[in-house]
Amino acid sequence: MIRKFITLFILTIFIWLIWSFSGRNTPLPYPTTYLSVIEEINPSDSLTRNIVGIQPFMEVTDYFSQQSFQAKISEYIVAADAENLLKKNTLIVFPEYIGTWLLLIKEKHSLAEKSSLNEVISTMIYSNAFDYFLGYLKTGDEENKEVSSIFRMKAKAMLAAYYDTFSQLALETETYIAAGSIVLPEPTVINGEIFVKLNGPLYNASFLFGPDGKVIGSPILKAFPNSKEDPYLTAATPENLPIFDLPFGKTAILLCDDSWHEESYINAINESAEIILVSSFCTGNHSMTSKWNGYDGKKVSEMVELEDVGNITTIEAWEKYSLPSQIKNTKAQVGMNVFFRGDLWDIGSDGQPIVLLHNTMLPVTPAGKAGVWSLNF
């Protein structure tokens, strides 16, 4: 009886291994950019500084390998360069969560056919049972231990693809790249490289890459996670948000919800930042033009007026409470907010860039899916 049980157990493990490893290395389609807009804002022959905001349109298949991810990201930069938008010391900005979906790297390609993120999470758990268990042992007091375990399980692979991609592109183009964000456990920067502590708290983190391919300064950690992030992310301290002293001006970089809170701008005010950038991910198709449901986070900005809930659109709320209004309390004269767009299961996305110069919102041509906008200043 024991022998039969052992035989059955070994057979089960063997079948699981075959299923687990199948479909991870099938050919991937070459990424499609869906790029419909390349626009120069405030064109001038005399202005020497510019910020290039990139709104990519990402698909699940873009994240199964570093090669696919880097090829997709590179296409947008190549398109900008072809229009002579990349100059010496150009600053390129990518949206929030651009690197987070690298959790799919080397996973089963059938995940692209799932209809919901919950199905993806379940499949990843079952197909990586042993690694998932090790990730689970490293979790802390997060409410959502499933997601927390997956991020820890994939942290090193995610980080390697993210770092190598943006480091190489910054080095090749000799530009500065605000590389959107990625979820990592306790990231730190040492000598321009990123390190993680697998049993540390998870953060939504962004990094600024310099023309030498190295990370500049400290990680930019999100201080005000929204309700979807709160079950697995740790809130950083807004007073620790870094200000980068760059050749074209002191620059602050904020992640999405942080731009709604006065506390996030304290260092920008104290250090007289000249440029404020925001990387965002607004979930839900057509959500920006829908009625605003109110601020989605633990701590609501004191500026928010309750009578606006349900009476103004989401984009009107962004303009009233986020960067366009908050920047007026600083000395910054340049601002840009870019949004993540993509087709990722049932998540949805929306948003168009918000561009500010001298406290005035500048008109931009909206993109159906992906776009590149260069602001001269």
Rank of each mutant, 00 (worst) to 15 (best):
M1D: 14
T7G: 13
L8E: 09
F9P: 06
I10Q: 05
L11Y: 10
L11I: 14
W19C: 06
S20D: 02
F21V: 14
S22L: 12
G23F: 11
P27K: 01
P29A: 07
P29H: 03
T32Y: 02
T32M: 02
E39P: 00
E40F: 01
S44L: 10
D45W: 06
L47N: 11
L47V: 11
T48R: 10
R49D: 10
N50Y: 02
T61D: 13
F64Q: 02
Q70P: 01
A71T: 14
K72N: 04
E75C: 14
E75F: 02
Y76W: 11
I77M: 07
N84R: 09
L85Y: 01
L86D: 00
T90E: 07
I98C: 01
I98P: 00
L104D: 09
E107T: 02
H109C: 09
H109E: 13
S110Y: 08
A112S: 11
E113I: 05
S115R: 10
S116V: 04
I121H: 09
S122T: 15
S122V: 11
S127T: 13
Y132H: 04
Y132M: 03
Y132Q: 07
F133Y: 13
L134F: 15
K138V: 09
G140E: 05
S149E: 00
F151E: 01
M153W: 05
A155H: 01
K156H: 14
A157K: 12
L159N: 07
L171D: 05
T175L: 05
T175M: 00
A179H: 08
S181Q: 06
V183E: 07
P185T: 04
P187V: 03
T188C: 08
F195P: 09
G200A: 03
G200D: 08
A205I: 03
S206F: 10
L208W: 03
F209N: 01
G213D: 06
G213E: 06
I216T: 08
S218N: 12
F224Q: 05
P225Q: 02
S227F: 06
K228S: 06
K228M: 05
Y232D: 04
L233A: 04
L233M: 14
T234A: 11
F248E: 15
T251S: 09
L255H: 11
D257T: 09
D258V: 01
W260N: 14
E262H: 08
E263A: 13
S264P: 10
Y265W: 03
I266P: 08
I269Q: 13
S272A: 15
I275Q: 10
S280D: 08
S280T: 03
F281N: 06
F281D: 02
C282R: 10
T283M: 15
G284T: 03
G294Y: 13
K298T: 12
K299C: 09
V300P: 07
V304F: 14
E305M: 12
E307C: 03
D308S: 15
D308F: 07
V309I: 13
N311F: 15
E316W: 06
A317V: 06
E319G: 12
L323Y: 04
L323K: 09
K328M: 04
N329M: 14
N329S: 10
T330H: 05
T330Y: 04
Q333R: 14
V338D: 07
F339C: 01
L344C: 12
H358Y: 15
M361Y: 13
M361T: 08
M361C: 07
P366D: 00
K369M: 01
W373Q: 00
